[in-house]
Design a protein around this nucleic acid. Sequence first.
DNA 1: AACCGGTTTAACCATTTAGTTAAACCGCAA
DNA 2: TTGCGGTTTAACTAAATGGTTAAACCGGTT
Lengths: 204, 204
Amino acid sequence: MGIKDSGTEARILEAAKTVFMKYGLYGARMQDIADTAGINKALLHYYFRNKEKLFDAVFDGALSKYFEQMNVFGDVSLPLEERIFKYIDNIFSFLSEYPQMAMFIIKEISIDPAVFKEKVERMKTVKGPTLISSLVEAVTKKQIAPIDPVVFLMNLHSLCIYPFLAAPIFKAIVAKSPVQWEDNEHEKMKQSVKEFVSFRLKNK
Amino acid sequence: MGIKDSGTEARILEAAKTVFMKYGLYGARMQDIADTAGINKALLHYYFRNKEKLFDAVFDGALSKYFEQMNVFGDVSLPLEERIFKYIDNIFSFLSEYPQMAMFIIKEISIDPAVFKEKVERMKTVKGPTLISSLVEAVTKKQIAPIDPVVFLMNLHSLCIYPFLAAPIFKAIVAKSPVQWEDNEHEKMKQSVKEFVSFRLKNK
DNA sequence: AACCGGTTTAACCATTTAGTTAAACCGCAA
DNA sequence: TTGCGGTTTAACTAAATGGTTAAACCGGTT
């Protein structure tokens, strides 16, 4: 096994990610992936057997990377609001680095939600309390306002993720308006999410 | 011109919308569209010439339907907050009826944002003040809190639209948690958006 | 030098795909 | 009945597509 490892497999995955993220499983072309990776098309089959297996390798990688951001909730030594703030920081950093990731995951899941359920089962990274269970417990103990955990969770993710999905659209719309899309717009949005969380959890 | 009009063109558009929404321009198959419409494939080309023109007809229709929801901001006889509340009602109704519409528009735009810019130019439905210009004016006149209009706009759309994009994911996640996805979850989310808007615009 | 196994390639195959075509069908008008 | 133009169809074409194959290449080992 002392054969050279030129990193072909890694380059294929990177190229596949680029092409699958843009065109999806059915719209992506194997030749495009090969071209992007700078290799012969037969190599795709040599390393990954077929298109669907290659797609799964890419999608599973994306999904597990995303789930890693949830690990912050396992640290019960921190107060809930602080854990949520760290999660917001994680999500914003993660999506700033991989802006297409959210779109990729959501759009492939919208094609076949059942596959997502099965992947979530196989990929349970979070040990200890989840955000939902932490919220339920905090409400029960009256540590936070009596919020609906599902609505809160959806609101939280809405404010964190949608800005990355819609940034291209907003930049186009804002360009024709009396205001500007500023460089620190995402930073301001992150701040706004934290303010929303504080407002929402505050016991009145 | 007294020839029968069996509604073939309309059925093609409906079928095309279904298939394009699921698979995108490149992933959709013309034979699938024909099968869904219950016609011979050649008719697709007879009525729409080629795949891309058919796609444009569908996408432009979706986009203009969406932009219609913005018309509520032209009614300056209503206070700003009330117009925003009507807009929220419109968006939630619209996306409840066409749940795949948001995903369709966002994902096709993420493939080629430049095309979106050009379609927005060609499709300027909103006359009178836009939400952005109304916000800027209201801040200037100190009628509302000194918010950043771009951040507010993004937050508003995040809370309205993302819940429809992510509903399949959330239903899967919630199914494995101590809480329930209830029938009126979207209604509660709509309420939550309005509370957020009031909180955000409130002068302190 | 010969052999080995992993890696890579050019060429190929069978199927799929978007698009085209000639002709049939249909209702209407003359 | 004939002619017309819009609509529809079965059959077809050329290109694209996922996948396969035989053989060359390469570094390491004997």
